[in-house]
């Protein structure tokens, strides 16, 4: 059972990375890409809980770090933390609301971008804030809108068609 789940997670991880690497660049607007992996992780953690969130976050982050080896381990820790926190927050936030989901995804992406900027720059807050305003904020907004749209609007449209 656990092995089967591990394979599924591994498969999903590969697909997520593919989507992030291939589809993310094609979805870029004015050079801003949505963080599909983070958005999917947040939604997964909402549904599966903190344990799955942190495990998937760790694996996905580690793989992403391995493919883009600037700060190997940092992204794994950040995604794992995001998955863990979002998994815990599922009991205290009304997740069924698409607006709340979009807000959570936005905040998670924003914090992720900020923390990544701060840690990767060696705690240079000015540079991190500038980077956050220039690309982190638009990217977080884009991620929230896109992931929420895919997670809520598309299934509703498909259900309505049926």
């Amino acid at each position: 059972m656990v092995a089967q789940a591990a394979w599924v997670v591994l498969l999903l991880l590969g697909i997520g990375l593919l989507l992030q690497n291939d589809l993310g660049s094609r979805l870029a607007l004015f050079g801003i890409q949505p963080d599909l992996l983070l958005g999917a992780l947040v939604l997964l953690a909402r549904r599966m809980g903190p344990l799955t969130g942190l495990a998937v976050g760790f694996a996905a982050g580690l793989m992403q770090d391995g493919l883009m080896p600037d700060h190997v381990g940092l992204n794994a820790w950040l995604l794992m933390t995001a998955g863990f926190l979002c998994g815990h927050a599922r009991e205290s936030i009304f997740w069924e609301s698409s607006v709340a989901s979009a807000l959570i995804v936005f905040l998670a992406a924003l914090l992720h971008n900020f923390a990544q900027g701060v840690l990767a720059s060696g705690f240079n807050l000015n540079a991190s804030l500038q980077l956050l305003l220039r690309s982190g904020l638009p990217s977080a907004a884009y991620t929230a809108v896109f992931v929420t749209f895919v997670a809520y609007a598309v299934p509703r449209v498909l259900r309505g068609r049926d």
Binding site: G49, L51, L54, A55, F58, H71, G73, L74, A76
Partner: peptide, 18 residues
């Protein structure tokens, strides 16, 4: 268990990074 795992994996991830 999730918390303990988080602590452990945090050490691993930050250990690899640092």
């Amino acid at each position: 268990a999730a918390f303990l795992l988080y602590i452990f994996l945090s050490f691993v991830a930050l250990g690899v990074w640092l």
